[in-house]
């Protein structure tokens, strides 16, 4: 009798529930499937992974720049090259992300309980743009001077400038290399896990066809 009760009651406390939740929602076969639905047959699908890999190049070149500190790239040819890699990886990131975004919009990829996937993707876009802005602010050159003195007016207009001072190099440096990257990483991770959990959105049922519910 007692044994039966113990067996039927969920065990493991919060840890056990978290593990069961993960096993239910993201079993390894869902997390890393070796096949995809047969309708996944277009180059548009490649832009998600291109965005992710461009982000990794952004992070990688940013780490190299961080190792030697902010002055390095102004005085070293190697440093300047890594600054160029950082800039162009960001331009590629935004190009790939824009194509991914437009593609997913026209696939109405939020269908089938995928709204949160869309929202986390949209937040990623905004978080990347904001992180990029702080990058422009810590260049220690004319660009940084210009962009900070311009951006301050926009931020001051809504009271944000009182706490987020774009002319404070130290503060912007920490936001750019620590705080915003954490936000981007978490949102992108959640986005990818949601994509894997729900699977790739099925084709839109054509008007009049069976299953069309528009």
């Amino acid at each position: 009798m007692t044994e039966q009760l113990v067996r039927t009651r969920p065990t493991g406390g919060w840890t056990g529930s978290l593990r069961r939740g993960m096993e239910r929602n993201l079993p390894p076969a869902k997390l890393l499937p070796d096949e995809q639905p047969s309708y996944v047959a277009s180059w548009i699908y490649v832009f998600g992974v291109l965005t992710l890999t461009a982000l990794l190049v952004v992070v990688g070149s940013g780490i190299v720049l961080s190792v030697r500190g902010p002055d390095w790239w102004h005085t070293s040819a190697v440093g300047h090259y890594f600054n160029s890699v950082h800039l162009w990886s960001v331009e590629l990131l935004m190009v790939f992300m824009s194509v991914h975004l437009i593609g997913k919009f026209f696939m109405a990829a939020w269908r089938g309980r995928r709204a949160l996937t869309w929202i986390t993707g949209a937040v990623s876009f905004i978080a990347c743009a904001t992180t990029a802005l702080t990058g422009y602010l810590i260049q220690q050159n004319f660009d940084a001077q210009w962009i900070s003195t311009q951006a301050k007016d926009g931020l001051n207009a809504i009271g944000v400038g009182a706490y987020f001072n774009v002319m404070d190099f130290g503060q912007m440096m920490l936001w750019h290399v620590a705080l915003f990257p954490i936000v981007v990483a978490l949102v992108v991770l959640l986005h990818i896990l949601l994509v894997r959990r729900r699977g790739v959105v099925p084709p839109i049922a054509r008007a009049g066809a069976a299953g069309d519910r528009s």
């Binding site: 047969s38 548009i44 331009e91 194509v99 593609g103």
Partner: peptide, 25 residues
């Protein structure tokens, strides 16, 4: 040029044929 790259990449992604895999099921 950057906007043109986005538009061209989008058009290419939509129009270029994707390599066919073997269907299962």
């Amino acid at each position: 040029v950057m906007v043109a790259v986005i538009v061209l990449a989008l058009i290419a992604a939509l129009l270029l044929p994707f390599p066919k895999g073997r269907d299962r099921g």
